[in-house]
């Protein structure tokens, strides 16, 4: 986060002025999901269940992981019907 601002520099009424994407939750992670495109059938379930909007999928191509934010919960790997996602340390 940038330097803390003074009361004259922030909007009134307590309106948040920074998008949360700037806050990187990726460092919460112990294990990271790695998608094996050989096994992936693009069913989209990992995208559907990810609580952190951290599976990026356009509906056509293979899904990818937003490692800046993925918290490593492992839901995607657990739910993947073809076991195409592996949780890897780091």
């Amino acid at each position: 986060m940038s330097a803390l601002r003074g009361w004259k520099e922030i909007p009134i009424a307590g309106i948040p002025f920074e998008p949360a994407v700037k806050y990187k939750t990726g460092d919460w992670r112990v294990f990271r999901p790695v998608i094996d495109n050989e096994k992936c059938i693009k069913c989209g379930l990992c995208w559907m269940f990810c609580p952190d909007s951290s599976i990026i999928w356009d509906g056509d191509n293979f899904p990818t992981v937003d490692y800046e934010h993925c918290k490593g919960c492992g839901i995607c790997a657990h739910e993947c019907p073809t076991k195409a996602i592996e949780m890897v340390r780091g």
Binding site: L4, W7, I10, I12, A13, G14, P16
Partner: peptide
């Protein structure tokens, strides 16, 4: 400054020791 899908804002966030005081200052000044 309103609920408006054209320009979404969040009203009523969690505000801790880093900014709560500044928001109170704004009320004092108003």
């Amino acid at each position: 400054l309103m609920l408006n899908p054209k320009y979404p804002i969040s009203i009523g966030p969690l505000d801790l020791y880093d900014y709560y005081f500044e928001h109170k200052m704004q009320q004092i000044e108003a």
